[in-house]
């Protein structure tokens, strides 16, 4: 009986810790994740559902004691969940994407790969580039954003 009470106590502590840690992660990265999700699903109602799902089902490594989750892990997870929940009507074909200028090409490659979920190989194939070129464009795009 005492062991059962101890077990219940441990579970309760774990539950409270999880809630506190998940909510503090939400306070820190909620707006960042919502921005990503909204870019992928431009429908606030669905985007909010994905956001709630994201922060209420975070993998244990995100909120375990002593862990220091980095933003990139959360960025990847937000993208993955949003792409999985994206309604069919928001799926655009690769052929409908045409860059207007050369500067737009880096942004287009980034949009296609990150926000629309196309593989680097598919993008390379469509834009008649090599995979290395596509990755270089992502590099150049972020370099441009940093400067």
């Amino acid at each position: 009986m005492r062991a059962l009470k101890h077990f219940d106590g441990a579970l309760a502590t774990q539950a409270v810790n999880r809630e506190t840690n998940c909510l503090s992660l939400y306070d820190r990265f909620g707006a960042l994740a919502y921005g990503i999700i909204l870019q992928i699903i431009p429908e606030p109602e669905i985007a909010q559902t994905v956001l709630v799902d994201l922060f209420s089902s975070l993998p244990i490594e995100f909120y375990a004691e002593g862990s220091d989750p980095v933003s990139s892990e959360l960025i990847r997870l937000a993208r993955k969940k949003a792409l999985a929940a994206k309604p069919e009507r928001y799926n655009r074909s690769l052929s409908s994407q045409e860059p207007t200028t050369n500067d737009d090409l880096g942004k287009l490659v980034f949009d296609l790969s990150f926000y629309q979920g196309f593989s680097v190989e598919d993008i390379a194939d469509k834009l008649q580039l090599t995979k290395t070129n596509v990755l270089s464009m992502i590099y150049a795009y972020f370099k441009q954003q940093r400067s």
């Binding site: 809630e19 707006a31 909010q48 956001l51």
Partner: peptide
């Protein structure tokens, strides 16, 4: 590019975790 979520979302997350 962050967008602040609506105020009720935090409570929804808390409720879902519970």
């Amino acid at each position: 590019n962050a967008v602040p979520p609506p105020p009720g979302i935090r409570e929804k997350i808390e409720l879902r975790i519970n």
